[in-house]
């Protein structure tokens, strides 16, 4: 029901919390299922140096926030912009139909970080 990537990031989150000196903030809110992610990011010289989140939602959406943060930390915004849609899709592994909305959340997070760049 939950693939090993989701189980791993949900059970052992690496990036939940707050970034005191954040200079970027991403917000996700799904009005239907209520999934909410507030992500704070510190970008220095066009590179993500820190990212942490607070979130409410299902296990897969919490894992999605963690997977996103894990991916962007240490990368430049230019590198992130190179990502192709199918590469983003594969980050969450194979999802069941009720979990598919988390792909939208993940794409939304990538769009937001790049649109604010």
């Amino acid at each position: 029901m939950y693939n090993s990537i989701i189980v791993d990031y949900f059970s052992k989150p690496r990036h939940s919390g707050d970034v005191i000196d954040a200079n970027r903030e991403l917000k996700i809110g799904n009005s239907v299922c209520g999934d909410t992610i507030f992500m704070k990011i510190k970008v220095t010289d066009g590179r993500v140096v820190n990212a942490k989140y607070k979130a409410y939602g299902c296990a897969t959406s919490l894992a999605t926030a963690d997977i996103f943060a894990d991916y962007i930390i240490g990368k430049s915004l230019a590198e992130i912009a190179q990502l192709l849609a199918h590469e983003i899709d594969s980050m969450l592994g194979e999802l069941e139909p009720p979990q598919m909305h988390c792909l939208n959340i993940l794409h939304d997070l990538f769009e937001q970080i790049l649109s604010e760049a």
Binding site: F10, S11, C58, A59, T60, P98, N104
Partner: peptide, 28 residues
């Protein structure tokens, strides 16, 4: 969210319970 709580209980503590709602993008 009970769904997240039940997954956490199952994956981290090995505990089995059940929940009163299923996660779905289209409808609750």
């Amino acid at each position: 969210r009970a769904e997240a709580l039940s997954v956490l209980l199952s994956q981290v503590y090995g505990i089995a319970v059940s929940i009163g709602s299923a996660c779905s993008a289209e409808k609750a």
